[in-house]
Amino acid sequence: MSLGEKAKTVLSSIRKVYSIKYAALNVAVAIAYYIILVELVRYQNYGILVFGVPKLLIYALVVSSSVMFTIGVYYTARRLGSISRASASIFGTMATVFTGVVVGCGCSAPILFGIGSLFFSAVELSVAESYISGHGALIVSVLLAINAVLIIYYFGRISAEDRV
């Protein structure tokens, strides 16, 4: 399938999925994800919202993760007999939570050091903190790229299954 055809397929799937009901769900999930992310950042920064990466990346990640969730719900609603369908939502949720931890990892990093201290020394954890604080934007960008690829993949699958 050429790139143009694939794009058309994905677009038709998007139109199919995004009825008013699912669009509303998407917005609600995006808001919920944003709140989760913000609270994770605040928890790590004494209640202060300090993003270590450009806000645009945060918004893009929240939107893409909410699209993944919507796809998951759409799958579930259409195919009740299958055990799979909540699939897409899982990575989206993981990406959001992980981004909350990464973005909030600044001067202090209580989640990283709190959980990590069960397995690693402070010296080892400081390496992780150092990497995350220096490469937060890169990490979020990678998560965003994975989200984007998965969204295209799942919309493609919706289209393929419809042909069946």
């Binding site: 270590g52 600044g106 001067c107 402070a122 010296v123 400081s126 390496v127 903190e129 150092s130 604080s133 220096g134 937060g136």
Partner: peptide
């Protein structure tokens, strides 16, 4: 830039 911290070992 933004917040950065070298590892404790460094």
């Amino acid at each position: 830039g933004g917040f950065e911290l070298q590892p404790l070992s460094v």
